[in-house]
Write a protein that binds this DNA or RNA. Structure first.
Lengths: 331, 331
DNA sequence: GAATCGAGAGACAACGTTGTCTTGCAGTAG
DNA sequence: CTACTGCAAGACAACGTTGTCTCTCGATTC
C-alpha cells in the first residue's frame, strides 16, 4: 500500500471525502466535532496531501518552486548568488532547484527543460549557451526567466549584470594613473560574455590613453601557465589585469614562481577571501554577488506576481578595492 | 487557457487521446504515419506532459528529485558537498532541491517537511537540530535519509563523517612532536557535533602526552576576538589548533595583528583556497568535502534503489597537509 | 470462402484532489 | 401545521494522464 489518501482518512474518521478536504483546507463551514475527528485521523494515519493531485485539480496553483542555474555552485561567486536567491525565496516560502552548468550549453538546455517539466514558477539563469532561443520551446511560456551575470540572446527577460566594462576600465585607468604603460589583460575565452565586456573595458581605457593592448585568454585551469607566458615576454608588462578570480589566483602563483609579486602590479576582477592577507594584498574590482542574487530574485518574484512591462536591465556596481598589488609602481 | 493537454494534441492531430499517450511514451505499436502527425501536433502546440497527472496515474513513479540540506551553500565546505551531490544526481537524471540551515533547527524541520510534501525521493542532511526525531513524522517513511558531516540522533540513516577526532588528534600530536607544550584549542560551540569530536581529538592527544588543555569556543563571527584573547594570555600558547575554516581565518588575522604569525604555530581543521600562498603557508587538516558529498549521494541512491540493510557509517579520511605554519617551533 | 489471428487504435476507468451541485435537517415565520 | 430559509455535509464530475479492455480490419490458415 502506498501513502494514505483522503479517502482513507474519511473512512477512518467516518465522514465523507469532501469533509476531509474541507478540514485539510481549513474551510470554516465544518462542525468542530468533525474537525477534531478528522484531525485525529490525519495524525494517526500520517496523511499528507498529494501535491500532484492538488495541482491537477486547481490548475492555477503555483508550485512555489523556482530553478536556479549557475556556472558552478561550488565557485564562491555562484555560491554567493545562490545563497542570496535562496534567502529571498525562503522568505516567500518558495523552494529552489539548483544546477551547475560548467559552461555546457547542453546541460543548460537539459536542466531548463527539466525544471519546466517540474513546473518551476520561474528561472534564474546565468547563460552559458551562445543562444537562449531554446527557451521559447523548452521553457514554459508565462513563467518568467531572469538572467544573471551574463546577458542572454534569443529570449527576453530581466537581466542583472555587474558593471563589467566600466569597472574594468576604471581599474585599468587606476594602473595607468600610476604610470604603467605596458598593461596586459588576461581573461576568459571570449566565448563568455563577461569576458568580452571586461576586455572591452580594458580596451576603452587603453585606447583613451593611447596605449597598445596586450591580451591573452586563459584556458580552463591553465591560468598559471598563461600568466607565466605573459610574464616572460621580452617586453614584460609592468602590470597585469586578470579578469576573473580563478585567473587572478593563477597569476598570483605565476608571479610568486618568478619572484615578481612585488615588481609587477596586479588587479583582479572579482574579490576573493583572504585577498587582503596575501603579500602584497591584492587589489580587486569587487563584484557584489549577494546583491546580484538578491536583485535577480526580486525581479523574478515581481514577474511571478504579475509585473508585466518591458524587460529591465539591472546594473550592480562593482567597486575597486585598492589593497597594495594594484598600487605598485612600474620599475 | 492554460497549457495544452494531450486532448488538445489529439484533436489537433485527429487521433485519439490514448494514441497521443502512446506516442509520447514511445510505445512501439503505433503506425509511423500517426506518430509523425502526433509529433508535429506536439511541436506546434508546444505540448509538455503534466508531470503531476503522470505521477498521479503511475503512483509508483519516483519524482527523480532529492533534497539537500546543508549548513550554508555559500560556505566552501557546504558548496563542495553540494556540488559533488549534484554531479552524482545529474549522472542519474535526478534533480536537487537545496536549502541552507544556518544552524537553525526550525529551518531544518521546515525544509525537510517541505521537501517531503514535494515527494523528494531522498534527503541528504547535515543535521543542525539537536534531534532528528521529527523526521519520523515530517519525513516520508520509505524515502531514505543520509546524514553528512554530522551524526543524527532520533532517526536512523546512513551517515558520512570525516575522521574529526583522529584527524585532530594526529594534528595535535604533530605539534607536540615539534616540542610544543602549550597548545590551545579554538573551536565552534560544543552544541555542534563536529566541534565536540574535534575537541575530543585534541584532548586525546594532550592527555596522551600528559599536557594540560586550554580550550576556547569562538562565537559566530567572533573568531578573531577569541583568538586575540587566547594570544594575550599571560602564559601565551606556543601553538594554536583551530577547529574550523572560518575560525582559522580569524586566528590568522589575530596573529597578524599581533605580529606573531611566525612565532606561534597554527594548524587549522579544513583546508581553504590560498592557504599555501599565505606567509607562512598554513598547515591544515584537510577534509575531502567532494568525497563526502559523493559518498552521501552514492549511499542515498543505493537506498533509493532498494538497498535495505542496517544503517552504515562511512568515514572519509582527513589528511594533514604540512605547509609551514604548523611546523614552527616553540620559542 | 470461412474461421482464426494479430496488430493497431479507441473507449473507459482510475489515480487523489477540489469545485459545484444537491440533499438533509433544524430553525423560523406565516 | 406548512412553507421557507440557511447551513452543514455528502454526491458527483472534473483536472491530465495511463492501464486495461474492446473493437476493427486486414492477413493468414485450413
Amino acid at each position: 500500500m502506498g501513502r494514505p489518501t483522503m479517502n482513507d482518512v474519511a473512512r477512518s474518521a467516518g465522514v465523507s471525502l469532501k469533509t476531509v478536504s474541507r478540514v485539510v483546507n481549513g474551510e470554516a463551514t465544518v462542525d468542530p466535532a468533525l474537525v477534531a475527528r478528522v484531525r485525529a485521523a490525519v495524525a494517526s494515519l500520517g496523511y499528507r496531501p498529494n501535491l500532484g493531485a492538488t495541482m491537477l485539480r486547481r490548475n492555477d496553483l503555483r508550485t512555489r518552486t523556482i530553478g536556479v542555474l549557475l556556472e558552478d555552485v561550488s565557485n564562491p561567486f555562484s555560491a554567493a548568488v545562490n545563497r542570496a536567491v535562496e534567502d529571498e525565496a525562503h522568505g516567500r516560502g518558495v523552494h529552489v532547484l539548483t544546477g551547475s552548468l560548467d559552461e555546457d550549453p547542453v546541460r543548460e538546455r537539459d536542466l531548463a527543460g527539466a525544471f519546466a517539466r517540474r513546473h518551476a514558477d520561474g528561472l534564474i539563469l546565468a547563460p552559458t549557451a551562445p543562444d537562449q532561443g531554446y527557451l521559447g520551446t523548452d521553457w514554459q511560456p508565462g513563467a518568467p526567466v531572469v538572467f544573471v551575470d551574463r546577458p542572454a540572446t534569443g529570449y527576453r527577460g530581466d537581466t542583472v549584470l555587474a558593471t563589467n566594462r566600466s569597472g574594468t576600465a576604471d581599474a585599468v585607468r587606476h594602473l595607468i594613473a600610476r604610470g604603467h604603460r605596458r598593461i596586459a589583460f588576461l581573461g576568459d575565452a571570449p566565448r563568455i560574455a563577461t569576458a568580452r565586456s571586461r576586455r572591452q573595458g580594458y580596451r576603452d581605457a587603453m585606447r583613451e590613453a593611447g596605449l597598445p593592448t596586450c591580451e591573452a585568454a586563459a584556458p580552463d585551469r591553465g591560468a598559471e601557465a598563461a600568466a607565466l607566458a605573459l610574464l616572460t615576454l621580452p617586453a614584460r608588462p609592468t602590470a597585469l589585469f586578470t579578469a576573473q578570480n580563478l585567473i587572478t589566483v593563477g597569476a598570483l602563483r605565476a608571479l610568486r614562481r618568478l619572484g615578481l609579486q612585488h615588481r609587477v602590479a596586479l588587479v583582479g576582477f572579482d574579490d576573493f577571501p583572504l585577498a587582503d592577507l596575501l603579500d602584497p594584498p591584492i587589489t580587486v574590482v569587487a563584484q557584489d554577488p549577494a546583491a546580484m542574487g538578491r536583485a535577480a530574485a526580486e525581479a523574478l518574484f515581481e514577474r511571478i506576481d504579475g509585473y508585466d512591462e518591458e524587460p529591465r536591465e539591472i546594473s550592480i556596481r562593482t567597486m575597486l578595492i585598492p589593497r597594495g598589488s594594484g598600487e605598485l609602481l612600474p620599475a
